[in-house]
């Protein structure tokens, strides 16, 4: 993968650069979804237009919780039946104690699903080589285009430069 990107010192210039790239995307032959943004802090409230992000996480979590709870009941019911040992005059599958096991596994299911969904949907962990610049964690905002058309990449760079990029760099994974 190749990429060209600019490092912006503040949100204003980064926002302008984004807007410019989007407006010109068809002329600059930028593929859909090829515009890249990276920042050292969440920019959800900064008007970058990606507050429209969607995730199924809030739906998957309750699903995981339900699965966990069901697994809790199955575990309690199965294990106490395969080796039935009465204690203290209680039934083998006692309602209240099994409820506790179900509750804990319900919560475990929810938490576990959330973590796994986060990692998978955020595509972490990833240790290969991909577009990134350490300047991002220095507070710079990275705006770039992945796999730019070879002929247009110079013009994209100029756009980034003119909108206030401190540096324009190129990236190649080869």
């Amino acid at each position: 993968m190749n990429a060209i990107y600019g490092l912006f010192p503040d949100t204003n210039s980064a926002r302008r650069a984004l807007a410019a790239l989007r407006e010109e995307s068809s002329r600059l032959r930028i593929k859909p979804g090829a515009i890249v943004l990276m920042s050292s802090e969440p920019l959800e409230e900064e008007g970058f237009g990606w507050e429209k992000q969607r995730t199924y996480m809030p739906w998957l979590t309750p699903l995981g919780a339900l699965l966990g709870g069901a697994a809790g009941y199955a575990l309690a019911a199965f294990t106490q039946r395969v080796y039935p040992l009465p204690t203290g005059g209680m039934p083998l599958i006692a309602m209240y104690p099994s409820g506790i096991i179900m509750y804990e596994l319900t919560m475990f299911g929810a938490i576990f699903t959330t973590i796994v969904t986060l990692l998978i949907s955020a595509r972490l962990p990833f240790y290969g080589k991909r577009l990134y610049d350490p300047e991002v964690t220095n507070g710079k905002i990275l705006v770039g285009v992945a796999d730019p058309d070879r002929e247009c990449s110079g013009e994209i760079g100029q756009h980034l430069q003119s909108e206030g990029a401190e540096q324009v760099r190129e990236f190649s994974s080869e």
């Binding site: 080796y83 040992l85 009465p86 204690t87 203290g88 005059g89 209680m90």
Partner: peptide, 12 residues
């Protein structure tokens, strides 16, 4: 004593 044992060492 029986139900509190986690390993069924005490049982009926």
């Amino acid at each position: 004593c029986e139900p509190v044992c986690p390993t069924y060492a005490a049982y009926h």
